[in-house]
Simulated scan of single mutants.
Amino acid sequence: MKKRLIIISLLISTITLSQQANPFEIIFSGKTDKITKENILDIYTFIIDLDKSLKKEKKIITNYDIDYRPLLKNKRLNELGNILNDIKNNLKTQIVCENENNYLKLESKFTASNCGSLDLRNYCIEIVNSNINIDNSSLISNLGIFDYSNNKKWKEIHGGLEYKFKILDENKNEIKLDIVLKAFSKSNYKILSRKDIGKFLFTNKSIKLINLSNNHIALDIIDISNPLIFPYKDGKISNFKGIHTFPLYKSLYEYLISEKDITIEKLSTRFPLEIFKKLNTKGTYKIILPETSIGNEIIIFQKKYKKMELNVEQKL
């Protein structure tokens, strides 16, 4: 099992620079148009490894010792308006060149009260529209959790946000951006078991539970929300260990779950070249695959945000 997970982990974390798409790009990045007669055997082999990881029984989690209540709302809920104004007023945009590539760099900072830890992932700068072509998959961010509990003399603390996007255009003399600033406020949450498979999880029908097995979760996420998910038991939660999260074509996932023994012959019959090329038109499920078992229940949080919109124009 470890060998299979290592194979998948390496494929998830590495993208080849060659002209021919590798199995990772085709299965997880929607590039089914890159499938050819020359590489489809590699794709089938990759799918067989993935299928074994999806179905393998795993070690049971025993350390349910984390209180989930701090995840229900931002401890700085009453400050979010001021924090967003700080981010807006301190926002800087610039083009930087690194390793012969041009990047759009966004950075800002804000002041908040010192009430313990500060999770910078609760605050973000999102580009909605841009006059320059940027590669969102190349995003580099400098975000993390900082604990100020031992610095009680500090009444205020400072947080910084930094993002870099690779620019695909050349010779632009002006930046025009439509930006949304977001600060996490509260969370909706649901405690789920296998009896909830097939149900929409929230009233806005944004997330549907497709599968909850011993070792993976499958979700149909209708909008762009990115839920937080934890194993749950008796009012406490645990952290997943060694988690992999990736999209998987809906029809391919449904076939893998319905079939016991996947072989190259079966895959070539069910998904010949001409059918495989169309898989990306049918949508994907979000798969959560940890190294340890999931248990009987999970808790899922859907974050809500306080938002602020702004337009940025800058001559280069």
Rank of each mutant, 00 (worst) to 15 (best):
K176F: 07
G198F: 01
N214R: 03
N171L: 11
K172E: 08
D223K: 07
K190F: 12
A183C: 07
D169R: 09
S187N: 04
K166A: 08
K172C: 09
I217L: 06
K182V: 15
L181T: 09
G144H: 02
N211I: 03
F165V: 04
I221K: 09
Y163E: 15
Y163N: 12
K190E: 13
K152P: 00
K186C: 13
W154N: 06
D135W: 01
S225Q: 05
N211F: 00
K166P: 04
N173F: 11
H216A: 06
N142S: 11
I145R: 03
R194Y: 07
N171C: 15
E170Y: 14
S149F: 00
E162W: 02
L201I: 13
I210R: 04
S193N: 12
N214P: 00
V180L: 15
S138A: 05
N136W: 11
T203W: 08
N150V: 08
Y148H: 15
I224H: 08
F202R: 02
K155N: 13
K190Q: 11
N136G: 00
K186G: 07
K208E: 10
I210Y: 04
L192V: 05
F165Q: 03
R194M: 05
S225K: 03
K195F: 00
E156D: 13
D178P: 06
L181R: 11
K199W: 01
N188I: 02
E156F: 08
I207E: 10
H158F: 13
N204A: 10
D135R: 00
E170W: 08
N204H: 06
Y163G: 03
K182I: 15
I157D: 05
N142Q: 12
N173M: 08
S225E: 06
N204K: 14
D178F: 05
W154D: 12
L212E: 09
S193E: 02
E162L: 15
L192K: 02
D147R: 02
K164C: 10
K172D: 03
S193I: 07
K155F: 06
N214G: 13
D223C: 01
K172T: 03
L139K: 09
K186V: 09
W154L: 15
S149C: 06
Y189E: 01
I217T: 07
I140F: 10
N214E: 09
I145M: 00
N188R: 01
K153C: 01
S213W: 00
L139M: 15
A183K: 04
K166N: 12
Y163P: 03
K208I: 04
I191A: 13
F200N: 07
D169A: 10
G159T: 12
D178S: 14
L201W: 02
K205A: 08
E174W: 00
S138Q: 02
G144D: 06
I157N: 01
K208Y: 04
I191N: 07
K164F: 12
L212V: 07
L212G: 15
N188E: 14
